[in-house]
Amino acid sequence: MTQAQDKQVLYTAHDLSKSYPMGEVRVHALRGANLEVYEGELMVILGPSGCGKSTLLNLIGGMDSPTSGTIKLRETEIAHFNERRLTTYRRKHVGFIFQFFNLIPTLTARENVEVATQVCDDPLPVDEMLEMVGLLDRADHFPAQLSGGEQQRVAIARAVAKNPEVILGDEPTGALDYETGKLVLQVLKRVHEESHKTVVIVTHNVAIAEMGDRVVRLRSGDIQEIKVNESPSDPEDLAW
């Protein structure tokens, strides 16, 4: 899992930049980033608030388009997809996990997973996914009846159920307490191992970086370092 040359490249980002206007100034969120994401790896993108890590994740996830540069999913250039193609791309290839869970409050846990699988070509069984995150018995509960950790586990089930190429987690523990955060990371790790999906986690929490196969350090829109983690930690052993 550690030798780059053994790995198939899933994403290639080349000279990726993103800037956007904020009032009268232009904010450069990402400045010419170069990155490869390998199939089946768990990558952690680490950096302080405002360093451009979420921007990088959104560009990989097709939620946004870069100002310049390219991103390839295998051989397919996705950076300048139009809205319709980006939608199809998100539908088929990406599973998102957000900081604030973003479950639909008017759907039950099961329905929240189903709503994702309904637009996919090859989804995984919904109940199996709920069982995998340990929430099958709470499948008929609404988000407001679930704890934060449970909501995030539903969000993980939702992301995996789409059977995507990549699962992108944007500060998945950011809104959770320490214990719950660890629990969610364990679930994420298990999902990664069982499903062999590529997982990219964005976090500002240095401790979490230890669970990644590779850790990308970002600062002020620049990739400072890409470190290969020879022995990724189990989330159980993490402490912050």
């Binding site: 996830g61 939620m63 809205e83 319709r84 939608t87 199809t88 998100r90 539908r91 088929k92 990406v94 998102f96 957000f98 973003n102 479950l103 639909i104 409050p105 008017t106 709503v115 994702a116 637009v119 996919c120 939702r158 789409k162």
Partner: peptide
């Protein structure tokens, strides 16, 4: 808005 944005992230198009 948030639910709708979430559906977009899941791959529903804007029209849907």
């Amino acid at each position: 808005e948030r639910d709708l944005a979430c559906l977009c992230s899941l791959g529903y198009d804007r029209g849907d």
